[in-house]
Amino acid sequence: MRKIKKIYKAVSAPMGDLVTYRALPTREVEYIDPFLFLNHHGPQVYKPGNNGLPFGPHPHRGFETLTFILDGDIMHQDTGGGQDVIEAGGVQWMTAGSGLIHAEISSEKFKKEGGPLEILQLWFNLPAKHKMAKPNYIGLQKSEIPVVKEDNGKVNVNVISGSWDDTKGPIPSLSDIYMASIELQAGGSFSTTIASDRNIFFYVVRGAVNVNGEKAAKLQLVEFINDGEELKVEALEDSYILLGHAKPFNEPVVSHGPFVMNTEEEIHEAFRDYQAGKMGVWK
């Protein structure tokens, strides 16, 4: 089995009235190549007549985002033409690539009615060869994500990219990144094999699990050593986890705010291009 290097607790990083925990980066762990950043918003309940999510128009270049909507919704719009509202159980995968401007806010319905909200956003790096790829956006509702049932239905694997057994995720990854969200009933378990040259991303959103002999509870990120290939997970209570894996890029990572590149000069160029309107103009 794959040995665990360390288990990290996400840190509190509130954004105004939005409850937020950040699992990556923290003082203890910078990133797990190519997984760069994870913000866990909520869980919380918004009252009717709220202002919703605070993520108005802002630029990105050089990486991808994957957003999980567990409760509430997100209304997405970008200068590449992407626009929709994704509801609970759905995901949004955006390839910023060469650059775009986007906004992620709550729908008018959510702002009017309120309700529970829990959303996670994960950033993946892009390798140098794909940093300037054409921007792309894919939004999927819950019904569009294939589910693999394990352990007599006690485990639901929502396959987003890559494959689980014979089930292929609907989102093609530029960098062969596998991603799934996994819901487990108490006592439910699964095992899977992940090549030892791939880094694992493992975050417990809700509940608590035993993973390869160690307990990991909600708001904890598990970092593994690249030795064995087997992953064994058992739910100690009803749980929800994010599981991903990918080959590390082993490239320099230079990030500044909304841009992630390989050199400082590329960061300066990104700011110049944004200011010159090369990432689109927000209307």
Rank of each mutant, 00 (worst) to 15 (best):
132 M>F: 04
82 G>Q: 08
179 M>N: 12
187 G>V: 00
164 W>V: 00
204 V>P: 06
81 G>Q: 06
113 E>A: 07
13 A>K: 14
242 L>F: 07
185 Q>W: 00
175 S>D: 12
132 M>T: 07
30 E>A: 12
141 Q>K: 09
269 E>F: 03
56 G>T: 03
78 D>P: 01
62 G>A: 11
129 K>R: 13
278 K>G: 06
35 F>W: 04
238 D>Q: 02
133 A>K: 05
135 P>G: 08
50 N>P: 01
150 E>S: 04
260 V>D: 06
234 E>C: 01
74 I>G: 03
98 S>I: 04
140 L>V: 00
173 S>A: 13
223 E>H: 07
138 I>S: 09
271 F>N: 03
161 S>C: 08
279 M>S: 08
259 F>Q: 09
43 P>I: 10
38 L>G: 10
195 A>H: 11
126 L>Q: 03
271 F>M: 11
123 W>L: 13
136 N>A: 15
104 E>K: 07
44 Q>V: 07
14 P>K: 13
271 F>K: 06
275 Q>Y: 13
99 G>L: 05
184 L>P: 00
64 E>G: 03
264 E>K: 14
48 P>F: 06
32 I>Q: 11
281 V>Y: 01
236 L>N: 13
118 E>F: 07
217 A>M: 06
64 E>H: 08
2 R>S: 02
63 F>E: 06
147 V>K: 14
62 G>K: 11
283 K>G: 14
145 I>V: 07
26 T>G: 13
178 Y>Q: 01
212 N>W: 02
203 Y>W: 05
17 D>Q: 15
11 V>C: 13
237 E>T: 09
91 V>W: 09
82 G>N: 12
77 Q>Y: 01
30 E>P: 00
210 N>C: 05
42 G>P: 01
199 N>I: 04
111 K>T: 07
250 N>M: 10
192 T>V: 04
234 E>F: 00
209 V>I: 08
221 L>N: 10
151 D>R: 04
166 D>L: 09
38 L>Y: 10
81 G>F: 07
167 T>K: 15
112 K>H: 11
237 E>V: 04
68 F>Q: 11
50 N>T: 03
237 E>W: 00
179 M>T: 07
3 K>Y: 04
83 Q>G: 02
270 A>M: 02
250 N>S: 05
65 T>C: 12
16 G>S: 09
182 I>A: 01
143 S>A: 12
271 F>V: 15
129 K>Q: 10
54 P>H: 07
276 A>H: 04
1 M>V: 10
261 M>H: 08
234 E>M: 08
191 S>M: 05
133 A>P: 02
265 E>N: 14
276 A>F: 01
163 S>T: 05
11 V>Q: 15
230 E>K: 14
243 L>H: 03
89 G>V: 05
242 L>A: 06
10 A>H: 08
258 P>Y: 09
6 K>E: 12
56 G>Q: 14
281 V>I: 14
213 G>F: 01
140 L>P: 01
197 D>E: 12
87 E>G: 13
145 I>N: 06
40 H>S: 14
105 I>C: 10
194 I>F: 11
149 K>C: 03
